[in-house]
């Protein structure tokens, strides 16, 4: 049965986040030939971003521009999107499981008194049912879940559901709608950018992670260089965070972020079960550790037994060389 599905898009620094396109792909599975309606909140002209959503498979896109939507607030965005929900009465809603997605969607689901399946890694249509797969116990297990009543509402984990191929021949209307925003109860005073290059750990294709073996905050430098040449970002184990070598926002594991990049390079990480829970579903895992008995080698596809301060710089050079030759 075809459904109308809303996709809440998300942009950062003027361009759409990739997870938005993945959400459109998920919405296409749920809609089963029905309409996929994109929604964008912001302050300026969002025509081009809306068009981009159409090229990735949205049937049409509604843009909501208002000065109050310049930065994300749960009150502002939820009011704006709720007005669209009332207009459109969608049977499904999809968004990325990002900081904004995690903050916004429970609020909307609560207002709608609907179910919500968070952090789905797979969406499959089985007859009339939509079955979501999601990790539990930080990826130590998975569950299949369905919505039994009301709107089919889900957030999807970045990097797991492939986006549809961009096609400029796809046509769809991008229309602006006025929204009324009042009484925002949380005022954003300042945003201090700490993350490098704006690549978020949960969306990164390549992660170079350091553990106690990096020994100091300076010890992260070679790891940063490796992340740089690979176009990735740096993460850490709890051990490294607890030792004060880096910020807790970099922590990967059962407490901390759960990540599934294409390539995960663990440097000087022993591989405690809590850390493995956060990264062992990565597509390819490389472990570099002095201790041949380290647990991390049990989940690694490739291992090098050696000193990371010797291995990592050589790896940087080798990859640079490879790129020159290519």
């Amino acid at each position: 049965m075809s459904k109308k599905v809303l996709v809440i898009g998300e942009s950062r620094e003027g361009s759409l986040r990739n997870v938005t396109f993945e959400a459109i792909a998920a919405a296409n599975i749920i809609s089963d030939g029905g309409e996929v309606v994109g929604v964008l909140c912001g302050a300026g002209d969002m025509e081009a971003m809306g068009q981009e959503m159409v090229y990735h498979g949205a049937t049409r896109v509604i843009t909501l521009a208002n000065e109050e939507l310049k930065t994300y607030t749960s009150d502002g965005f939820s009011q704006a999107i709720f007005q669209v929900i009332e207009d459109e009465s969608p049977e499904g809603i999809v968004m990325g499981h990002t900081a904004i997605g995690k903050d916004l969607t429970p609020k909307l689901a609560s207002k709608l008194e609907s179910g919500l399946i968070s952090d789905a890694t797979e969406v499959v249509a089985e007859g009339d049912k939509i079955v979501f797969t999601r990790p539990i116990y930080s990826g130590k297990a998975f569950e299949k879940k369905e919505i039994t009543d009301g709107v089919v509402f889900a957030t999807i984990r970045p990097n797991n559901i492939p986006a549809l191929e961009r096609n400029e021949e796809l046509a769809g209307e991008v229309s602006a709608r006025d929204v009324d925003i009042q009484n925002i109860r949380t005022i954003i005073k300042d945003i201090i950018r700490k993350s490098s290059e704006g690549v978020d750990l949960s969306e990164a294709k390549v992660i170079v992670a350091g553990g106690r073996g990096v020994k100091s905050s300076e010890g992260f430098e070679p790891l940063e260089q490796l992340a740089d040449v690979l176009g990735g970002t740096v993460g850490a184990s709890r051990g490294a965070c607890d030792a004060g070598y880096c910020d807790y926002s970099l922590q990967i594991g059962q407490t901390g972020k759960v990540v599934t990049p294409d390539l995960y390079i663990a440097c000087g990480i022993s591989g405690a079960i809590q850390h493995l829970a956060g990264m062992s579903n990565s597509k390819v895992i490389v472990a570099i550790n002095k201790d041949p008995e380290a647990n991390i080698f049990n989940v690694a596809d490739y291992g090098i037994v050696g000193d990371l301060f010797d291995v990592v710089p050589k790896l940087v050079e080798e990859i640079k060389q490879m790129k020159v030759n290519a």
């Binding site: 569950e143 369905e146 919505i147 690694a300 490739y302 090098i304």
Partner: peptide, 22 residues
């Protein structure tokens, strides 16, 4: 308080095979 969602299956991820130590 009837739930709006239902879990139909719980399973473990495929066991990761230890790879190649160079």
């Amino acid at each position: 308080v009837e739930p709006k969602t239902r879990t139909t299956e719980i399973f473990l991820p495929p066991e990761k095979q230890a790879g190649k130590v160079l």
